[in-house]
Every structure is written in C-alpha cells, then in structure tokens.
Design a binder for these strands. Sequence first.
DNA 1: CATACCATGTAAATAGTTACATGATTCC
DNA 2: GGAATCATGTAACTATTTACATGGTATG
Lengths: 188, 188
Amino acid sequence: MALEHAILVSLLEKPGSGYELARRFERSIGYFWTATHQQIYRVLRRMEGDGLLAVREVPQQSRPDKKEYTVATPGRRALSAWLHEPVEPESIRHELAVKIRGAAFDDPAALISEVERHRKAHDDRLRRYLTGERRDFTGPEAPRPLDVGQELQHVVLRGGIAFERMTIAWLDDVLDTLHGLSAARSGT
Amino acid sequence: MALEHAILVSLLEKPGSGYELARRFERSIGYFWTATHQQIYRVLRRMEGDGLLAVREVPQQSRPDKKEYTVATPGRRALSAWLHEPVEPESIRHELAVKIRGAAFDDPAALISEVERHRKAHDDRLRRYLTGERRDFTGPEAPRPLDVGQELQHVVLRGGIAFERMTIAWLDDVLDTLHGLSAARSGT
DNA sequence: CATACCATGTAAATAGTTACATGATTCC
DNA sequence: GGAATCATGTAACTATTTACATGGTATG
C-alpha cells in the first residue's frame, strides 16, 4: 500500500498529526498521492498498532489537543525494505479521456466547457507549483546549496510541473479537435 | 464510477464479451483506464442486472462459448447523462515519486536501477502507442478522412503519447539528479 | 453572527486487488 | 508434454469514497 509509505515519508520529513498530514496531502505530497482525512486517521491508527509509528499527545492552548505521530524504528525499516523492492510502473486513470471518447456517441461540442474547466484547474495547479518551486528551491529566499532531501523534493515537484504543462497542452489539442469537429459538422 | 462508463463507451464502439473487454483494457482503453477481468465480469453482471446492457450467448466452435454484451437504451442514456455532468479534474498517483522522496532516508543511488526499469517500461509503451497511431490514424493504411469517433480516439491516444514522452523526459531528469547526488557524496 | 480553521473520528458503501479454480484448444 | 490463448467465474481482502458527527477558537 503506497499510502502507508507516503505517510512514512511525510512523517520522516517532519512529524505531525493526522490533520497536518491531511493538509500536506492537499499540498506538497498531493502532487504524487492523495488521501482524505478519514483514510489518513484510519491508516495512522493501524500503523501505530503495527508498531510502525509512535504517538504523543500534544496539549495546545486555544486549539484542540493533537496527536503527533513520529516514525518508529520498525517503520523506518519497513520503508527501507519497500524502497529496495520493485513496484509496477503505473498506468494512468483519466476520467476526462473516457468522456472524450464517449462524446462520439453524444454531442462532442457539449464537452467544450467541461474541457475548458479542466484546463483552468490544471493551469491553477501549475501556478501553485511554480510559486512553490520559487519559494522553496529556485528563488532568492531558497537555501543554497540544497540538501539531498530538498534535491529529491525538487525533482518530484519538477515532475508535477511537467505533468501539468503536458496536460494543459493536450487539453488545448482536445479543444482544437472539438472545435474542428463542430465546424466540419455545420459544413465548412 | 468511471469503470461503468468506460465499459459503456467500449461496448458502444464495439459489442463484446468480458474477455474481449479485458483485452481492450490492456490495449486501447488501457491508456486511460485499467481493470482486471475479475472486476470486469462483476461489473458486467451488475450492469446487466440494472438493465444497462443486453447479453447474448454466442456459441463458438473450437473455443468456449461466450457472452456478448451490447449497450441497451438505458445504458446509452446513462452515458449521455454522465457526459453532461461535470467530473473532478484528476490528481495523479505515482508510487515511484513516493519512492524518490523516500530515498532521502535511504541510499538514493540504490534507486537508479528501479528508475531505469520504469523508464524502459514507459519507452515500450510509447513505442506501442506510436505503432498503433500509424496503423489506425496517420499511416497509409488508415482510413481518410477519419470519422468523429476516430478523431476522438486519436486525440485521446495523442494524450497517452504526450504522457509517456513527458514521463520519459522526467525520469531522465530524475536519473541525472540521482547521479549528481552520488557524485557529490563521494566528493566531486 | 457567520464562516473558516483546527482536530478527530464512525459507519456504510463502493471499488479494486490478489489468490484460487476450471477446462478446452492450439502451437512449439 | 508444456505453455499460451480463449473464456468465465468465486472468495477474501484491502483501499477508497461519501455521508454523518462533534465542538472549540479566531476572524471579518
């Protein structure tokens, strides 16, 4: 299960609560894995039961107390073991692509606004990634030289940026295609 | 559930058995959705029970008989309805990226062979896609002009090609980074 | 005073994976 | 004789999503 491993990596980078993990899954970890708070809380409890994590109750003033999780030695070992095992190269799952092929059996032009909406969402994400990249890795405020962990975080972020750029370019291709089909239909 | 919709699209393109669908999910549909035969058989039965699909027993000689599924009118309507609803822009899930960030807590150089293996898998997939593109859409054997369904299939395939190319370029970036880290560690 | 944020969970349903199972035919 | 292809499935488990639930604090 990659969620367990993603949690181990995130907690090794910095210990934190389920809530904090959920927030990280919306941001930095989010560009390669997603999870909701419900799932995170459940997996945290299991991992703690398995001895992979240690918990510490942290009392807070003017905020609810929280449980701070840290990676225990067996957790570190489990991550190491996984890193040395091969994982299957991933295939994509893209609902919008299903829709695009499905549009052949409906009105292709009706899909244009949906594709535009997706294009905007990816464009927003790209901007967020680029802002984060300047802040943490390439801007004047960024530490220099970067340590090993930061270099690796940066190369993963570059992957996220490349993915969003590719997706935006492809969605433009899709929009051109859909417009072309409407024009042809109504007689060039 | 996108698997249902992917099945509807595939069966509209061409009716077929569960086995045939499973094979398509390894090929053409595979570049935007995956499913195993076990899952497909289960969903097919449910969809038939819901009246979305019609079945026909097809006797065959020198092969086991098969059940050929066709999309029924309610199935067509369900697909139409879904096409007009918005779906959430997808986030990626990439186990290898989890590993790359995890490598900071282990030996980054140990990941090189794993990344190379993934690079090769994506390169193989790209070659298959390009062969399919020439055969079905751009080669001299391809029909011309393409109909609406073929244009849409082609733009989705171009998405798969763009994804594989982007991934390969990114994995090269990852390999450079990993090599750079090893060189720096052993003292430049 | 309403909204957003902090913080943690339960319950139910659906989706997806992995292991097991069968049996005929074709190709090397 | 063994492996691959055609064809369909059951059972068990794991992962993920969605809906519901609570309650305090800070901000405009």
